[in-house]
């Protein structure tokens, strides 16, 4: 490849990087504007409540069912390994800690991103494509305050609740399989769990994670919808981007937060 081609390729690469950076900056300003103009969403709380319904309540089925199954699988897999070390009584600890610290926030976040996140993006994108957002602008109503902000807060409120429900269902699923099916002692199951799971260290950190994921996923969802090209193809691409970006963001954030919260601890 000659010099000119090489140069063209590098220019394209640089262009791609700058455009991504530019987009990130735009998205951040968008978030700032959105938060500043959330007055309507909070004063007319009805709007936000409606969005909590669409993002949270309609995700309940998938969250609860998935939570149950994940908890049951954890118990099955966990028992298989633990009983080799004679530690099968720690099954409750294994299930609870895995869920509360990691699987609850992360899996619930991923499910939320694909179900609610994509729906939000599609909705906002379609409103943009059919000029509904412009119509609102023309009627002197700020579409970001009226349409985007309630969806953002609806998602942020729903996410931690969904993660908690996921973890609770998972623990219940673990109990069903571990105690009822396999026969681990119920007393040991619960008492060891209670001894090992700490409110501040484990549960609170799990909640913090789910709040962070909620903000990340909903931010990506509303931004992609708002920024979508106003055509059918543009909306479909934006929806795909939401799911992919949100999933990556959750996993990356999870790593960072886990490293901050859970590693080491002072001592030996």
């Amino acid at each position: 490849m000659n010099g000119a081609e090489l140069r063209a390729r590098i220019e394209r690469l640089g262009g791609a990087v700058t455009s991504h950076v530019w987009r990130l900056g735009f998205a951040t300003r968008f978030l700032g504007y959105l938060v500043l103009h959330s007055g309507t969403a909070l004063r007319r709380f009805r709007l936000t409540v409606k969005e909590v319904y669409f993002a949270g309540v309609l995700s309940l089925v998938i969250i609860l069912v998935s939570g149950l199954f994940v908890g049951m699988v954890l118990a099955l897999q966990g028992y298989e390994t633990l009983q080799r070390f004679g530690a099968s009584e720690s099954l409750g600890v294994l299930v609870a800690l895995s869920l509360v610290r990691e699987l609850g926030p992360v899996v619930a976040g991923l499910l939320f991103a694909s179900r609610a996140g994509s729906a939000i993006t599609a909705e906002i994108g379609l409103m943009k494509a059919t000029e509904q957002l412009s119509a609102m602008e023309m009627m002197a109503v700020d579409p970001i305050a009226r349409v985007v902000a309630p969806r953002f807060w609806g998602g942020v409120i729903s996410m931690p609740l969904l993660a908690a429900l996921f973890s609770a269902m998972g623990i219940f699923g673990g109990y069903l399989v571990g105690v009822q099916l396999i026969g681990v002692d119920a007393g040991a199951f619960w008492s060891q769990m209670q001894a090992a799971v700490d409110l501040q260290h484990d549960i609170l950190n799990g909640v913090i994670k789910s709040v962070a994921f909620g903000i990340a996923v909903t931010w990506i969802a509303v931004f992609e919808g708002y920024d979508a090209a106003p055509t059918a193809e543009g909306v479909s691409r934006a929806t795909t981007r939401t799911v992919v970006l949100s999933s990556l963001a959750i996993l990356a954030l999870d790593f960072v937060l886990t490293a901050l919260m859970f590693t080491g601890g002072k001592g030996g």
Binding site: L126, M127, T130, E131, Q132, S134, A135, M138
Partner: peptide, 10 residues
């Protein structure tokens, strides 16, 4: 303003 296809809130 009347938009091209109405732009009604669906």
């Amino acid at each position: 303003m009347l938009f091209q296809f109405g732009a009604l809130f669906t």
